[in-house]
């Protein structure tokens, strides 16, 4: 008799069968919440400029002639 009832209530299952799970772990019809931080690489980074300038002068004896001082 009870199998008849089970047939009414759960036609696809026998009396002792476990009910089909409504969901399975992690798959419940709602997608996971995703956080993707920095994925667009935005901001462009930061650069700084540098420079070096060096100059050095030396002594050189001067000479005079009729054209002037060299």
């Amino acid at each position: 008799m009870s199998q008849l009832f089970e047939g009414i209530v759960r036609p696809a299952q026998s009396e002792v069968a476990l009910p089909q799970p409504y969901t399975t772990p992690g798959q419940v019809g709602v997608p996971p919440v995703k956080l993707m931080i920095g994925r667009d690489g935005g901001g462009g980074g930061k650069t700084l400029s540098g420079s070096v300038s060096i100059s050095m002068s030396s002594y050189c004896e001067r000479h005079e002639n009729e054209k002037g001082v060299n």
Partner: peptide, 9 residues
């Protein structure tokens, strides 16, 4: 005179 100039990033 001797000179040296450089720019960098």
């Amino acid at each position: 005179p001797a000179t040296y100039n450089e720019t960098s990033v």
